[in-house]
């Protein structure tokens, strides 16, 4: 049985969707997985919804870069909720941020239309408990918590590498990032 996971992350520009996908896919690649990551691009990348398509598998080579049905969808804004609609199927684990509007909630799938519907308060936690800049690390934790694509330590190592200088200058940033990652995992756990 293939363990291929098709993951779609959608958010507003600046929410860090692509850097989440980049770190997760690179860490998975380093862990020996088959990985494909393609950002949506085109005129949409200017002021549109930012979407990252990721596929991760232990063995099978990845086929087409994009897909029709997502196993995991993470929608982080009103527009993202609408953008991902066509990719929802009964097997989808659907994660959305609690900060979306009531209007957008109407466009969410019903509980019985998906395998799991999860509301996470990443936006709120980032803003009140941690820092707005680690919002995307919470998301990363959530995706990790849902997939366990790589050990948590691998992601920490990736963060360590990416933010080496910042962590060195201010070790509390390291703690904040690690806490954000853990929070994200717990939100979906």
């Amino acid at each position: 049985m293939s363990d291929l996971k098709r993951i779609m992350l959608a958010g507003e520009g600046g929410q860090g969707v692509q850097s989440v996908a980049m770190i997760l896919s690179e860490a998975s690649y380093k862990a020996g997985k088959q990985v494909m990551y393609i950002p949506n691009f085109g005129v949409e990348q200017r002021g549109g919804v930012s979407v990252a398509f990721m596929q991760i598998s232990s063995e099978d080579p990845i086929g087409s870069p994009k897909f029709d049905d997502a196993d995991i969808i993470v929608a982080l804004s009103d527009r993202a909720v609408r953008r991902v609609q066509d990719f929802v199927n009964p097997n989808t684990i659907y994660v959305y941020d609690s900060a979306i509007s009531d209007e957008a909630r109407k466009d969410l799938p019903k509980e019985d239309e998906v395998a799991k519907l999860v509301e996470i308060s990443a936006h709120e936690i980032a803003n009140t408990e941690l820092h707005v800049r680690v919002f995307n690390v919470i998301i990363m934790g959530a995706v990790l918590g849902l997939t366990h694509m790589v050990p948590e330590e691998d992601i920490k190592a990736a963060l360590e590498k990416k933010f080496a200088k910042k962590f060195e200058a201010d070790p509390s940033l390291r703690d904040m990032n690690y806490t954000a990652l853990r929070k994200g995992m717990e939100l979906v756990g």
């Binding site: 088959q34 990985v35 494909m36 990551y37 393609i38 691009f41 087409s64």
Partner: peptide, 10 residues
């Protein structure tokens, strides 16, 4: 093609 241009894989 554009997919191959922009996607990342091993």
């Amino acid at each position: 093609d554009g997919y191959q241009a922009k996607m990342r894989e091993a």
